[in-house]
């Protein structure tokens, strides 16, 4: 009888092991925690991104923690937020980085500890990023150049107003723009200024620049706040019709200026899609449903006075509250 007793014990043990195993598999279906850190949280662009992220968070049952610094130059604050996320042991970090280089060390550390890193909108100089999602910034710069050439008349004397040179997306856009403009013999880059990502400061610096360089008849600028600042500047000096302005993103005030003619074209990104896809990728990566893959490009649309009220453009241009 000893042998059968041994067998009985073996049976009981295997039953216990099995129930444990079953319990363990359930852990796989625990809710994933995702931290989303953007450049700031108060622009229309990032508000849309957050709306998209929320939509995906509900769909994939992800706990979304959203934060960003007050100013879009404050990379140190971003690093603090990244560190907090690492300490909280989140499953993934979605980041739109202020500084291309200064956050790399921390993000690599996060990646090494098993946190999936997804970059949206503005990239970092790291090869441990699992997924990149965002505008093809170089192409967007090219688009800006193309529409500016169309909208402007004759030979253009162009001013470039760009924000923090350490932020990747702005630099790429400028590069795309310049590479396209160079091919056009009649267009000259007259002036390039660097401004902080702030409406009022941009306006003042732009007015200053225009006063110093009265020949400028075209301005390009690459993000939401600088667009508003440039628009304000051109309006204030009363040269809406004289200066062709191409800007980025779809702040309500910018749309108004577009309708009024102060701004001639807006390169509108799709932050909602970035936010949505960012969270979706974060979920897919952290549940192991797929591995890292190539950058997902979200389309940018060139919106002008002519097409701004088209059905499709409406949906991309005007956010819901």
């Amino acid at each position: 009888m000893k042998q059968s007793r041994k067998r009985l014990i073996l049976l009981v043990l295997s039953l216990v092991a099995m129930t444990c195993g079953l319990g363990c598999t359930d852990r796989k279906n625990e809710r994933k925690e995702v931290a989303m850190i953007t450049k700031s949280t108060n622009s229309s662009f990032f508000k849309s991104m957050y709306a998209g992220a929320k939509s995906a968070a509900a769909e994939f049952n992800v706990e979304l923690q959203y934060e960003g610094p007050q100013h879009e130059e404050d990379f140190e604050m971003q690093n603090v937020m990244i560190k907090n996320a690492i300490d909280r042991e989140v499953d993934a970090i979605i980041i739109s980085a202020i500084d291309y280089n200064q956050s790399v060390e921390l993000l690599d550390k996060a990646a090494d500890s098993g946190i999936k890193v997804v970059v949206v909108d503005s990239d970092v100089n790291s090869d441990k990023v699992s997924q990149r999602i965002g505008t093809d910034n170089y192409a967007a710069g090219q688009q800006a150049a193309e529409i500016l050439l169309k909208k402007g008349e004759g030979n253009l004397r162009i001013a470039v107003v760009n924000f923090d040179e350490n932020t990747e997306n702005g630099q790429e856009r400028e590069k795309g723009f310049l590479d396209t403009i160079i091919k056009e013999p009649g267009a000259i880059i007259e002036k390039r200024i660097k401004v902080p990502s702030d409406r009022v400061e941009t306006k003042e610096r732009t007015i200053e620049m225009l006063k110093e360089n009265p020949n400028i008849d075209a301005i390009v600028t690459f993000n939401e706040w600088t667009t508003l600042g440039v628009g304000d500047a051109v309006k204030e000096i009363g040269q809406q019709t004289d200066i062709a302005v191409v800007g980025f993103d779809n702040h309500i005030a910018a749309i108004e200026m577009l309708e009024a003619g102060t701004i001639d074209a807006l390169i509108v990104q799709n932050p909602f899609a970035m936010g949505y896809l960012g969270v979706k990728s974060a979920w897919e990566l952290s549940t192991g449903n797929r591995g890292a893959s190539e950058k997902k490009v979200t389309e940018t649309v060139t919106v002008t006075e002519e097409n701004m009220f088209d059905s499709k453009c409406q949906k991309l241009l005007f956010p819901f509250e």
Binding site: G52, T298, E299, K312, L316
Partner: peptide, 24 residues
């Protein structure tokens, strides 16, 4: 989720319409 479309199949409102129109 739910969305609204008209009889011809055009989307009237979709909770993720921006992602839809971006083709993603």
């Amino acid at each position: 989720y739910c969305f609204i479309m008209d009889e011809r199949g055009e989307i009237v409102y979709h909770p993720q319409q921006q992602v839809l129109f971006a083709g993603m």
